[in-house]
């Protein structure tokens, strides 16, 4: 049997809006994935530490505070330094399309904005992760 997908969901920085991330956590769990939720107010260092300790297939940030252009690149940088740059970095929140494109050029995976269906999120991980596991 194939190994279960293991996903880290994190809330970074001062952003305290966690309703969305909890809905996503539940959807991923119900799709048979193992979801590690960090709780609120995590620093990029704590998030990458959790990614290393939990050996996850994807690191996902939920950001509704507008700090995405700082937090995503910082987490990506720390992941590269820690040797897990091949692990998927994804997430969602209130992120303008232009910023999503810009972040994707920096190696961040697909990001999900308001109105994204839970099904599309589940399907993205189910397709993307097996491909990346070949690299790990």
């Amino acid at each position: 049997m194939a190994r279960r997908l293991k996903i880290l969901l994190a809330k970074a920085g001062l952003d305290g809006h966690d309703r969305g991330v909890k809905v996503v956590a539940r959807a991923l769990r119900d799709a048979g994935m193992e979801v590690v939720y960090t709780g609120l107010h995590q620093t990029p260092e704590q998030i990458v530490n959790a990614a290393l300790q939990e050996d996850v297939d994807a690191v996902c940030l939920s950001i509704l505070s507008g700090a995405h252009m700082t937090l995503f690149p910082r987490v990506k940088e720390l992941m590269d330094e820690a040797g897990i740059g091949d692990t998927l970095l994804s997430g969602g929140g209130i992120i303008p399309d232009d910023d999503m494109e810009e972040l994707q050029t920096q190696g961040v995976g697909r990001l999900f904005g308001p109105g994204s269906s839970l099904k599309s999120i589940v399907e993205y991980f189910e397709e993307e992760i097996p491909r990346r596991r070949e690299l790990r």
Partner: peptide, 27 residues
């Protein structure tokens, strides 16, 4: 479904802040 929501890290903020402490969640 076999899925799991592993939330113990939320209650272990001091342990997870210390890089010398290794915290692992298991389903």
């Amino acid at each position: 479904t076999g899925g799991a929501l592993l939330g113990d890290r939320v209650r272990m903020l001091r342990a997870t802040e210390d890089p010398e402490v290794f915290v692992r969640s298991m389903a």
